[in-house]
């Protein structure tokens, strides 16, 4: 059994949806955990952040490999460069955020809603990086047709 389906230009398009879904879902459950102070919900949120960040790292490196295997039109090169740069910012942002959340897992008092909201706001700000990266990736595929044909 081959890892990459015959129709796919590379593995990157198969990976990218995981970090998008996981990190969005992590912020959603993080929001819920501020109000519904359940230990299981809080721990699940951290695990979702962790897997979302690991997914983002994987997506970044598969993207770097993919960028050298496709043949984009010149007009798409700048979008591809920006997509790559924003992906790197997203990976760094969520890596630092997740590591800090895991390190200070015990320090964050569940009852301190102000602090919890402040920490949540930092994650929401990170979603802008994620959304913009995804937006540029979508533009590459659907506006310029990058990677649509092998």
């Amino acid at each position: 059994m081959q890892l990459i389906p015959e129709w796919a230009p590379n593995i990157h398009p198969l990976i990218i949806h995981f970090p998008i879904a996981l990190l969005l879902f992590a912020v959603f459950t993080d929001t819920l955990s501020v109000w519904f102070q359940k230990d299981w919900l809080y721990k699940s949120t951290l695990m979702t952040y962790l897997f979302g960040t690991l997914g983002a790292i994987t997506a970044y490196f598969t993207g770097r490999i993919a960028a050298d295997t496709v043949n984009p039109p010149f007009k798409a090169e700048l979008t591809m460069s920006n997509h790559s740069d924003w992906a790197l910012y997203t990976v760094i942002y969520f890596s630092v955020y997740t590591i800090l959340r895991l390190i200070f897992i015990r320090k964050l008092d569940p009852a301190n809603k102000i602090l919890r909201l402040a920490v949540l706001t930092v994650a929401i700000a990170g979603l802008y990086l994620l959304i913009h990266t995804g937006d540029l990736g979508g533009k590459l595929v659907f506006k310029y047709g990058v990677g649509q044909f092998k």
């Binding site: 050298d68 295997t69 591809m80 460069s81 790559s84 740069d85």
Partner: peptide
């Protein structure tokens, strides 16, 4: 050749050789 932002690439035909 493409020079887009901080990214530079060299191609022979459709094949990317350098980045």
């Amino acid at each position: 050749v493409s020079a887009a932002g901080r990214h530079f690439k060299g191609y022979i035909g459709d094949e990317n050789i350098t980045h």
